[in-house]
Design a protein around this nucleic acid. Sequence first.
DNA 1: AATCCGGCAAGCTGA
DNA 2: TTGCCGGATT
Length: 800
Amino acid sequence: MTNPTGFDDPRAPFDTAPAPSAGGIAARAMAARRAPAYLDGLNPEQRLAVETTEGPVLVLAGAGTGKTRVLTTRIAHILASNLARPSEILAVTFTNKAAREMKERISRFIGGNVEGMAWLGTFHSICVKILRRHAELVGLKSSFTILDTDDQIRLLKQIIQAEGLDDKRWTAKAFAGMLDGWKNRALTPKDVPEGEARAFANGKGRKLYEEYQDRLSILNAADFGDLLLHVITLFKQNPDVLADYQRRFRYMLVDEYQDTNIAQYLWLRLLAQGNPNVCCVGDDDQSIYGWRGAEVDNILRFEHDFKGAAVIRLERNYRSTSHILATASHLIAHNQGRLGKTLFTDFHEPDHDLVQVASVWDSQEEARSIGDEIEALQTNGHKLNDIAILVRASFQMREFEDRFVTLGLNYRVIGGPRFYERMEIRDALAYFRCVVQPADDLAFERIVNTPKRGLGEATLKLVHGLARAERIPLMQAADQLCQTEDLKPKARNTLNQVLADFTRWRSQLAGVKHTELAEIILDESGYTEMWRKDRSAEAPGRLDNLKELIRSMEEFESMAGFLEHISLVMDRDTAEANDAVSIMTLHSAKGLEFDTVFLPGWEEGLFPHQRSLDESGRAGLEEERRLAYVGITRAKKRAKLYFASNRRIHGLWQSTVPSRFLDELPAEHVEIAEAASSYGGYGGGGYGASRFDRADPFERGSYSTPGWQRAQKAKAASSELFERYDTRSSRTRREGPRTIEGELVAKSVSETPSEFSIGERVFHIKFGYGAITAIEGNKLTIDFEKAGRKKVIDSFVERH
DNA sequence: AATCCGGCAAGCTGA
DNA sequence: TTGCCGGATT
């Protein structure tokens, strides 16, 4: 039997071998001793990316070019060449899923032992690890808790109210968004630019941020943004600590570099100062998280930031047909801010399908048509698991679900509310947190009166008051309060009982198996009982979820270990046993692949999404285009795009214009397909008013003269500048369409009052004749003779 | 404590 | 149009 790993002995203890100095002659000699088997089957670029271990390297890995393989092989190569021990490699991913995958693949290489890879994980989990060691240096205790979004919102709300602000005008959610933006940019309260700090709560933004951080440190807690931010602070203020990690990490790898934000970039740069062996892997064309703080600039500027960087492009695609690649490449070439790659493949067959574009009348026909196509594929022996529908916005999903239920077609929705976000899970976790961490005030608050036990607002207020006055945790305050006469006997007894319960459970931590203890807690607290008595439709499901929760605890050694994991891991385990079509958003499709991909909803306003254009102009448009690129490149064999002439948006039927992205596809790789079941008359067969059938869609006549472009550019720049300093009036000020260099980037909805009057008889292209019964602005309510009562926008009907 | 009503928003989501 | 939130109401 051949050795699949190419190692002399896959069980060799890498961890104990002395690591030769990086790039030393001995190391090179050892590496060169033979061409290891794990390098077989890599193409020259991949091999280069694996073997260029020294100095900064940027691997531009296009979709489907074997990125993960390169990353894992690179790590294996570093280990096999004895350049570093497993514990000396830092490998960062964005998601737990990616980290898990990488661990699995590496363990296959090195014979099942990745225990030594202590520093392979997400940015956040690695930061937690570092922080727990040096917590006191940033004002925390090593046992600090990690707040999730829900805790954070509740805390913010308290602070906003404490400041005497109207918490409706200044919502906790909005402020959480701002905080996120600041922390993504590694801004501490004092760093926040004056203008931004003043934009919230009548100029109190900075103060609220400061108070929030104070509260966190009193609670001995950190939010997700803090995990990174604290480590940056730690490194900056403690050069000796930083130097220690710089020495430790001989090799650093970052996956999905295009998704890093400024804080993550700074974090990496601090570590890289001591050691240039940084390898970042990413694809600027797949940067679709700008709205979450990701900076495409990080990847675009890599060569500038890391001097002497090698840039390696992986352009050989192993996933898709040449038509699909050509279509995606042609589309993405319309973006300006990109490093530029062109995917290619040797996979050419005359019978490969062209990329198809279909025009349908409305979203219902779209769902019907796609349903029919899927049934046809199924009849021809295709697996539903190999088929996906990728939508821009989650509201589009419902139409497909309705249709597939009718057809009896198996489907699964990826995304949606996560397991850990469910109320019952959060409640149960809060109980466990109170047992393990008696000082966890937020958890205590959550469950002190769940199930209802008559500990209402009045009691809580007293506890809160004492806790704040004495600066002690809520549970301790409650305990003290029970010794006094301040509480009514009934409340005192109940509270005493609750505290006694927690003390008892805590005493069982050491003796009882943690899964059993979890059951005991949920039973004795009356929590399971509460759901058993609940007769609502979702109660049984909730009980199932609780069982599932306890089952999932089994993998962990202790309750504390489980909680640590839970606070970082947000993946829901997905059962993929049965055959089903996947329905998901384009965002959640990144990294996946399917034989057949359906891409509905290619209409202006939906895709590209209007809001993206309004908020971010040209940059927003380019991000939308990257999203389109991600969508198309998910397909291995077949991609079919849809455009509906009518779509209901927020309850109103609107006529739509085909997405400009359709105009940007290469005609020679695309065919116009008739939708399976078109209505007669309108829209049948073609695009109607589309620009798609124009001889040259890029020809813009006199509008493309340099002078005109300059004028538009100047106009756009000045209006953008202006808008940045005035958030309130941008909506009303924007008048006509906003155009940048000949591209329509934003169009405003007409706000002029309707010219119609009640009782008037009108004609609508979809619903036929009817009479107006009500008018609100430009929205008309019309009783149609055939279609019944509908609300429509006035510009879609004609007087008759 | 449970339910009802009105108002508001409505894009993507990770740790 | 739906769905969620919060306040008011029973």
